[in-house]
Design a binder for these strands. Structure first.
Lengths: 113, 113
DNA sequence: CAAAGATACATAAGACTTCGATGTATCATA
DNA sequence: TATGATACATCGAAGTCTTATGTATCTTTG
């Protein structure tokens, strides 16, 4: 079952920041694959959503980029900045609090990973 | 701390369906107050989001409405339909699964309520 | 070796949702 | 009698995501 896109709304930046915090540097396509893998295919990032968001993160100064060539093929790597690391912590904490709040509202059990 | 609105995006319908499942019938303003109360003020539904969403639920056949007068003041009550009850279960389950997935991605602990 | 599928970037129009402001009106309280 | 709470609602603007499209390279398989 793939999650409805509505659910993922608002969490994309958080996911990207966290992945970049864990992996030092990643490129766009790699991110889509990693997320798919980590979520057993239940979250599939589309390029139309991913690239604009990565660009936005760059404009906000949360990531820096560097281009590498694999043969003739371009890869654009994204790396978290210090500001980005701080923001990542904020975002992840906010999401954790949000979930705690939603648990009360929806009266759900969240299974341990 | 009030949650950024982006986070609440995509969960509004789920929240509404769950509230209506628990409370049999509620009106709009009551919903905003109940949510504020249940979440210690951290989720504040705005009318601009609430009413269009309630109307959408009605169009989808998930809720029925009935108008009552308190003196001269109108109250529009919303009540969950059978379809709505089914949908509520689906939505709540989907959210629980989503959270389990996000826990893996973000590597977070979710405190028990 | 040709075709298909995967890798890899990106943009752009349209759809959808939410925000913030605005509007109307009643009721309670200071 | 004015303010704040109650109660409905809509609308333009803003923001985000989807779907489609575009370009190009690399790898695998028939």
């Amino acid at each position: 079952m793939i999650f409805s896109s509505e659910l993922i709304k608002g969490t994309l930046k958080t996911i990207l920041l966290k992945l970049l915090a864990d992996n030092h540097k990643m490129y766009g396509y790699e991110i889509t694959q990693r997320v798919k893998e980590l979520t057993a295919g239940r979250i599939q990032l589309t390029e139309g959503a991913l690239y604009p968001t990565l660009h936005a993160l760059e404009e906000e100064g949360l990531v820096t980029t560097e281009v590498e060539y694999m043969g003739k093929r371009v890869r654009k790597y994204y790396r978290l900045s210090d500001t980005g690391m701080t923001r990542k912590d904020e975002k992840v904490n906010e999401f954790a609090d949000f979930v705690a709040t939603m648990k009360i509202l929806l009266d759900i059990e969240v299974k341990p990973a």
